[in-house]
């Protein structure tokens, strides 16, 4: 049994009793699923036989999902070889081979999608970074909401002192959630805000300190150096880097996502990705490419605008929701 068949089997059985989270994945990924599966199904239906143009069209589907050229080419090659070996030439089965090849990449790299592990000895520190406009502040609010509901004492540290009204934005979330916030003045060195914030968190028995940073383009050296300094200040205050350092990635990001991951990894010991805006039409293929190249797992995924729409990334659910309508 191929991986795809296994996945379908696993979920189809309990599809009726779908839990809340599965529904979140289902709803959030509806658009992508429709497009992806209808494209693949159409292709299989229309094709009389499998030839090089068939594979070209499969290639197109992957590239349009932002999987990236290199990975796409290698997936297609693998599928062609496998089809030859197994003497398969029925379009539907070829599609299945491709999906299996794709799944194998996901599973080979064993996405390590565990929850945040809380420390007993002091507050758990989570640092959020990323390029401009990916949804860092909103993600922090959603994380705060999530763990507050689990009974944790949460605080926000608003260290984006650069963007106009970024602090106010987080403050508004803090008020809504009734979460304490330590904020910087305009243009204050973010490191000093963070130092104060950690002081506050530690002395007030906070369980989870969420640090918001300015959006920074990964190719601006001075901004990456600033982030390095932030990391050093955290180390100074708590003895280690942040317990979790997440890079926030917009699902609509193209191949530039690879450069982003590379540059942030050079600066910080990243522990994972938060992929936002997956409820759009972008298929987020870049996360596969990033995982292949840097072994950086997706930890959280944003599937909608509501507070509860940021959830732990579950690979099985993600793939099943994305692919279940492929025949």
């Amino acid at each position: 049994m191929g991986l795809f068949a296994y996945l379908k089997d696993k979920f189809r059985k309990k599809d009726n009793s779908s839990d809340k989270e599965t529904k979140l994945y289902d709803d959030g990924l509806k658009k992508q699923r429709n497009e992806l599966s209808s494209k693949m199904n159409d292709l299989a239906k229309k094709a009389k036989k499998v030839n090089s143009s068939y594979f070209e069209q499969l290639e197109e589907i992957l590239i349009e999902a932002d999987v990236g050229v290199n990975l796409t080419l290698s997936l297609i090659e693998e599928t062609i070889e496998c089809a030859k070996k197994k003497k398969i030439d029925e379009p539907k089965l070829i599609n299945e081979l491709l999906i299996d090849a794709l799944l194998k990449r996901y599973y080979d790299d064993s996405f390590d999608n565990h929850d945040i592990t809380f420390r007993d000895d002091r507050c758990t520190v989570v640092l959020i970074c990323g390029v401009n406009g990916v949804g860092k502040t909103t993600s922090i609010a959603k994380l705060g909401y999530r763990y507050q509901k689990q009974g944790k004492k949460v605080c926000f540290i608003a260290a984006d002192t650069f963007r106009a009204a970024a602090v106010e934005q987080l403050e508004e979330f803090a008020n809504r959630l009734n979460v304490p916030i330590v904020k910087g003045d305009n243009e204050e060195d973010p490191s000093s805000v963070i130092y104060r914030g950690l002081d506050y968190a530690i002395s007030h028995g906070i369980d989870l300190a969420l640090i918001d940073t300015s959006g920074r383009l990964h190719n601006k050296d001075y901004l990456m150096r600033e982030l390095g300094k932030i990391n050093r200040v955290i180390q100074k205050r708590i003895g280690t880097s942040a317990d979790e350092s997440f890079l926030v990635l917009d699902a609509s990001t193209g191949q530039n996502g690879l450069e982003q991951a590379k540059s942030f990894l050079n600066t910080l010991p990243l522990t994972g990705l938060i992929v936002t805006k997956m409820d759009g039409t972008s298929k987020g293929g870049i996360i596969l490419a990033i995982n292949q190249e840097f072994h950086l797992p997706v930890r959280f995924i944003g599937l909608g605008e509501k507070m509860e729409d940021l959830t732990i990334f579950n690979l099985d659910k993600f793939l099943y929701s994305l692919l279940k309508e492929v025949e």
Binding site: S252, T253, S282
Partner: peptide, 12 residues
């Protein structure tokens, strides 16, 4: 449009 966006930028 964000210059870093991928294939979907065109559809948007």
């Amino acid at each position: 449009v964000d210059a870093m966006s991928g294939q979907e930028a065109s559809n948007v």
